[in-house]
Design a protein around this nucleic acid. Structure first.
Lengths: 338, 338
DNA sequence: CCGGATAGAGACAACGTTGTCAACGACGAG
DNA sequence: CTCGTCGTTGACAACGTTGTCTCTATCCGG
């Protein structure tokens, strides 16, 4: 075969030799530095394309001490549409800054998150966007002191002062519940993830705030916590509907639970109202009415990325918390026919 | 504030000085090389954690000439669930090889794809997985000669011999259409992307093959090509249904078109059969019956990543083409009630 | 025609790490 | 007691690039 077994990559010195100049002159040409005669520059460019030279980014940023033009993104699971939307948005902002994005999954494991964080530090990324899994980020402190920039996304950091971008969870849940109350619902079933998780805690707080304001007592039998997937949500809904004095409306704390609720409510032909946190792609084709607490996921990622690049650009102002607003939207396939 | 303005990162020499040993000894310790007295090693480790030293990955792989433990993934759009599933799977395989993943979007622009490819080469990634946007990849040849490994995903390469992993597009479409024919359908509307795109071309070929075998003439009025989003698909469906002798069944060439078709068919209460290429997350909750041509998206990404790491590991066998099989699945919310 | 300014080019060292090899003391065999 | 060996340790150079400085030739005003 014509395989010329791993030809060595040409270096700046090879180019210099081929063009009959010094390595430094080649460096000047590839960096568009002034002070090279046009004629010589042409020779160098010719040699570069003849040899197929590509400057070694690692050597370059090692020597120059400049940015590595790489940022890191630590999320729970890239396969989740919420996170992949964020990753796509962050990558777009990064590209506008000629920066590459390394995405790693923490799989909700605080230990793994920490290991991934340190590995990215070793790579000398210019900064990181973190969706925290753990609840203590003091381990980042020494890295921050040495110049690592971080922005926390979707959940605030703890044990360290840093920028964050979050959704207005409590207000969103609160306004959603209030709208159910206005519609006359008095028994509202709540299906939500474990309050260990920041977003679940905040959303539940929003629910309680709305109920308290309406003078409706908080009924433990109507609140199921620790629900993490559609099946558990469907089961929780079923249990509540089968109980005495069943709810006339449900609040589900995230889109996974909402999916489970739709399945169960549709299966039973139940006409209970459904309010879910998080919009999702095919919500308009769901076989029953529902209301979702929506927000701009792209804006969430964009805001975090922008903040990060401000920091990388030299911003040393006091850490900020950006809050993304929510709004209520009607969903369900019945809207198509009207 | 207590900001100690960008403390310099400690190097191996700083650790050496703190531990009273030579830099080489520190290097031996952090690389778990034998031949260091336990006592000395402890001193070194103490100095490392005291100073918060993190080995500079770039300097390390520059000097050692070893792999950079980074691979690249070039896709069209990370926000698309198909690609994000692939990205997640590839990242998982990469993590098992202690490798980081840089994901970049080509946005279906061949020029951008080429630029991204070259940038990743400059970073000296160990290999790349590419979902080709362009139709000529001869520009990769010089890089391949210099040792860059590539695996093409979802579409085969052109102008270069390389590994690829693709779906069995033609056979999938063919068997789907044959199943429609068995159900007695004779007029089948086809809504598909531009045949410039490999997958659309193959799927259309599968359709024609099945029709030809059944002796059904190919009717141009029943084939709409160049459809890229749900709205166009819905419109194409509407036009065909409003024509004379409308179809009794539709084939949509990808999940975006399928969504558009569902919307239009549901809106009209049409009972036309629907067959769509690609399964999708909430297909089980769609408000009408449909059949999807499904395949294991994760397996697609996993196979490509595995092949890439085989190459990185030194495999120099002849390039292979892996074909992922498809199968037909019934979807739609009506299945929930049975 | 001279002195100083200026532009162009290269020599050299350094970024942080690690491969190579030499140096050292301790040890056992002869 | 001597020699070779082994186990440790360090000195040095090099990976590919670029910042700093020096050197040379050219140009201008006087």
């Amino acid at each position: 075969m014509d395989k010329q077994d791993r030809r060595r990559r040409p270096t700046i010195s090879d180019v210099a030799a081929a063009a009959g100049v010094s390595p430094k002159t080649v460096s000047r040409v590839i960096n568009n530095e002034p002070g090279v005669r046009a004629e010589l520059a042409d020779q160098v460019l010719a040699a570069i394309s003849k040899l197929g030279f590509r400057r070694n980014t690692m050597a370059s940023s090692l020597r120059s001490g400049r940015q590595t033009a790489t940022i890191g993104l630590i999320i729970e699971d890239l396969a989740n549409p919420f996170y992949s939307t964020i990753a796509a948005t962050v990558a777009n902002v990064a590209r506008a800054h000629d920066t590459h994005l390394i995405t790693v999954s923490s799989e909700e494991d605080p230990d793994l998150e920490q290991r991934q964080f340190l590995q990215l530090c070793q790579r000398r990324v210019d900064g990181m966007i973190i969706v925290p899994a753990g609840s203590d980020h003091s381990y980042t402190r020494s890295e921050v002191e040495m110049g690592m920039r971080m922005v926390f996304l979707d959940r605030p950091p703890s044990g360290i002062l840093a920028d964050s971008v979050v959704i207005d969870n409590a207000a969103g849940a609160r306004s959603g519940i209030m709208s159910l109350l206005e519609d006359g619902h008095r028994r509202i079933g709540v299906v939500i993830d474990s309050p260990v998780i920041y977003t679940a805690r905040e959303r539940l707080a929003g629910v309680r705030s709305a109920l308290a304001e309406a003078g409706i007592p908080y009924d433990d039998a109507l609140v199921k916590v620790g629900v993490t997937n559609p099946e558990e949500a469907a089961h929780a809904i079923a249990t509540m509907l089968d109980g005495v004095d069943p709810p006339t409306a449900f609040f589900t704390g995230n889109n996974r639970s909402t999916i489970g609720a739709i399945q169960e409510l549709y299966r039973r032909d139940s006409d209970a109202a459904l309010l879910g946190f998080d919009d999702f792609e095919l919500a308009t084709l769901m076989p029953r009415p529902l209301t979702v607490i929506a927000y701009d996921v792209q804006e969430l990622g964009r805001a975090a990325a922008r903040r990060l690049f401000e920091r990388i650009g030299g911003d040393t102002s006091w850490p900020s918390e950006t809050v993304i607003p929510t709004h209520l939207v009607q969903r369900g396939v019945q809207l198509l026919k009207s």
